[in-house]
Design a protein around this nucleic acid. Structure first.
Length: 509
RNA sequence: GGCGGCGUAGCUCAGCUGGUCAGAGCAGCGGAAUCAUAAUCCGCUUGUCGUAGGUUCGAGUCCUACCGCCGCUACCA
């Protein structure tokens, strides 16, 4: 199966922040998971670099737009590296190949008869360089600048979005799962059925953009330029390789504020230009800091980059997707992070790895015992439970249910800790007659931990590979295929004792 | 204004098509254990399931109204 996942391309008018990281990590989780399934994966992210705000941001800094976007794009690229994200390509809308593709794309819209030149009149604020609606004005003045806008007319090219209303409705009705979660599907559908108006796709007052091919006085408006990246990237991401097999995209990931562009305008554009439509879109919520106003002096703010540097990227990846139901808004906080980190990563998972390695070292000279024969009671049920955990996790990730996937892994982690208490290997070790049972228990812990590592790999890849390494198992990115995630896939090997995977966060630190 | 969503233990939240649905985790209290990062395991406590009505043999679960919070209501991504 092929799997093409995208993030939105990020607008480089400001520095990267946690919101960007969140979407990108989500895409990485899905990409890694599908590689584990053996799918043919392509994972795209990048930056959106045209438009007024960019030109303005550059001017504010006293640099050229080109300098500005180069610097910011480098920062976004660096973020993907720090997040340990495995994108296959990083697209920039200022790539010449992309620019040419956009021009060809709007030509297709025009050839389809969906482009029309119209005059647009509106109240224009010279300070914002943008139009306002009358109802948006405060006392007849621009709410941002407090100055009175002037009437201005501009000729722009319009895309006949209204002509696609019925086909978009039909698309939604025919494929209820194509936009998820359901609440977003409803939102987009109701938007469509309230009636669609045509939209302008070009600007004449702007220079930092892609010229309309048949009219050099106009540039293509930014969002059309942006959306097309999902297609254009496939034409040049890997020179010499035909990537067209990845289209249509399997899933577009995004936050809710750009739902309409993706769920309404984008499919209409694709219909017009004659492309297949993306198979699905998944819209997630916003991360809310602390619930109350952010306050640095209060010290309750979660600084993702500080967290990342101090506790590692896996801890942050884990927290974001364990704490928040993916698709909904979620409140995050430093307290919440520390709580999850200590109780789950340090106490439950990290400690399980430590105690397992320690017992194998202490009682079996550091080698995982075979002990795989017939077993009684809980031990007998464990293999099935472990494989069921992997299956549940797989089903959840297939449905983009990341938090429930983690929950299913954690139930099993707790079960392994319980097993240690129930079997009390330190007692078995004192009774030579129990040697076989001790072998079975230690073997089961290793086998169980291996499955935990494989299941956890998409979310916390470094941690997963480290667990495998300590267990003496193959531990490369290519060694985590789900096809091998069986109880009996454990190789007899020497385990390594090492410092805590996740050192506890002590109070006041 | 219109459309939609949310309000469940101190905290964060599960609860699909109505009948073990009154739950989980955290926090708190008590106990066991000592392999381990004083980590782990066992047990216990708290709730008018926003308010008031209604439908039903039976409603967090459906309907109505109300209170509170939030999203969308077109050309900034």
């Amino acid at each position: 199966m092929r799997f093409y996942v995208t993030t939105p391309i990020y607008y480089v008018n400001a520095e990267p922040h946690l919101g960007h990281a969140y979407t990108t990590i989500a895409a990485d989780i899905l990409a890694r998971f599908h590689r584990q399934k053996g799918d043919d994966v392509f994972f795209l992210t990048g930056t959106d670099e045209h438009g007024n705000k960019i030109a303005q941001a550059a001017a504010d800094r006293g640099v050229t737009p080109r300098q500005h976007v180069d610097e910011l794009a480098a920062k976004f690229k660096d973020l993907t590296r720090r997040l340990n994200v495995t994108n296959d390509f990083f697209i920039r809308t200022t790539d010449p190949e992309h620019e040419r593709y956009v021009q060809a794309f709007v030509e297709k819209l025009r050839a389809a008869g969906d482009i029309e030149k119209r005059a647009y009149g509106g109240l224009y604020c010279t300070a914002c360089e943008g139009f306002w609606y009358e109802r948006e004005l405060v006392d007849g003045k621009c709410p941002d600048h407090g100055i009175e806008p002037t009437w201005l007319e501009e000729e722009n090219y319009y895309f006949k979005l209204s002509a696609y209303q019925d086909r978009l409705s039909a698309l939604f009705r025919a494929a209820p799962g194509w936009v998820r979660p359901k609440s977003r599907y409803n939102e987009a559908l109701s938007f469509i059925e309230q009636g669609l108006e045509d939209i302008s796709i070009s600007r004449s007052t702007l220079k930092w953009g892609i010229p309309v091919p048949w009219d050099q006085e106009q540039v293509v408006y930014v969002w059309i330029d942006a959306l097309v990246n999902y297609l254009s990237a496939l034409t040049y991401a890997r020179p010499g390789e035909d990537l067209s097999r990845y289209w249509p995209a399997t899933v577009h990931l995004m936050a809710k504020e750009i739902l309409k562009f993706h769920a309404v305008i984008w499919p209409a554009m694709l219909m017009s230009a004659g492309y297949d439509l993306p198979e699905s879109e998944f819209i997630h919520g916003f991360l809310l800091m602390g619930g109350e106003k952010m306050s640095k002096t209060r010290g309750n703010v979660l600084d993702p980059f500080a967290v990342m540097d101090t506790y590692g990227i896996d801890a942050l990846r884990y927290y974001l997707f364990r704490e928040i139901s993916f698709g909904q808004d979620g409140v995050i906080s430093l307290e919440g992070f520390e709580g999850r980190y200590n109780s789950e990563l340090a106490n439950e998972l990290g400690n399980l790895v430590s105690r397992t390695a320690s017992m194998i070292a202490k009682y079996r000279d550091g080698r995982i015992p075979v002990g795989d024969g017939p077993q009684a009671g809980e031990l007998a049920a464990l293999a099935a439970a472990g494989e069921a955990m992997v299956a549940a996790c797989t089903a959840h990730l297939d449905a983009v249910e990341i938090s429930p996937a983690l929950e299913s892994v954690w139930e099993f982690v707790r079960r392994l800790n319980r097993l240690v208490e129930e079997e009390a290997p330190w007692k078995l070790a004192k009774d030579e007659a129990q040697a076989g049972r001790l072998d079975a228990v230690l073997h089961s812990l290793a086998a169980g931990l291996r499955l935990v590592a494989l299941a956890l790999y998409p979310v916390v890849p470094d941690t997963a590979l480290e667990i495998l390494r300590r267990l003496g198992q193959p531990h490369g990115d290519g060694d985590v295929l789900l096809a091998g995630a069986t109880w009996h896939g454990l190789a007899p090997a020497a385990v390594e004792q090492a410092p805590p995977l996740f050192p506890r966060i002590e109070n006041g630190a």
